[in-house]
Nucleic acid binder design. Sequence first.
DNA 1: ACCTCATATGAACATACTATCATATGAAAG
DNA 2: CTTTCATATGATAGTATGTTCATATGAGGT
Lengths: 116, 116
Amino acid sequence: MRYPSFDHFFITLGNKQRVKMLQLLNNEGPKSVSSIAKALNAEQSAVSHSLQQLLQCHFVAVKQDGKERIYSINEDTVAPLFRQIRKHVEKYCIEGCEHSWGSKKEVSYGHKRQTA
Amino acid sequence: MRYPSFDHFFITLGNKQRVKMLQLLNNEGPKSVSSIAKALNAEQSAVSHSLQQLLQCHFVAVKQDGKERIYSINEDTVAPLFRQIRKHVEKYCIEGCEHSWGSKKEVSYGHKRQTA
DNA sequence: ACCTCATATGAACATACTATCATATGAAAG
DNA sequence: CTTTCATATGATAGTATGTTCATATGAGGT
């Protein structure tokens, strides 16, 4: 593997499971591995693997709590990043976009692309 | 054509080639398919395939110009998005990169169970 | 020390993705 | 309407990626 590069950050975000995990942590706050797994109906090991990738990119942070390890989202940079993506999605995503980001307006139909 | 889902936007960004294309268009302005291919040392068809995906997510737009098709980046949302990611990268990649790999603890553990 | 719960890790497998090739479509020019 | 240049599209081979299974490691309790 390589050190996280500019591309790496995007690549790490380019996966449903990992995005869902970030969404979950973003919406519901810090969680343990097993409770993430339960919430997403996923295997513990799969969740753990994904979390390692998110850790490498510093999208999340961990802290130990007894036997559990509590993962939390990086508020400083990830939240704004998501806000930016959501902005794009809200503008261009047509229909059937099942997005469960924190805040959201109604999805409007039709492109709002401005012509050059 | 399928409408992009929320995840699609991330997934589309999760590819070096496509990110490079966006960076190119972002830095050097609108370009034709063949000139993108040349700039990135890539095959014409590969570039075209990638452009279709970027189009679907409205990360780029096209306009016909004679025989050529000129692709341009979506300034409104993509540029800010990149700025946001770069901010994160600058904060966590430079120092954090090496660290995230080197920081794996290599503690010797007390007990080792043997394989059954 | 042992046991148990919680998490991490490695390897193997299944799947998804990209790059490539061949070819089709489209646009201008003669 | 044929040719040529530019781009798009479909099929597919090759590769990367995620998922799963088995098991190791860690922490806390008894």
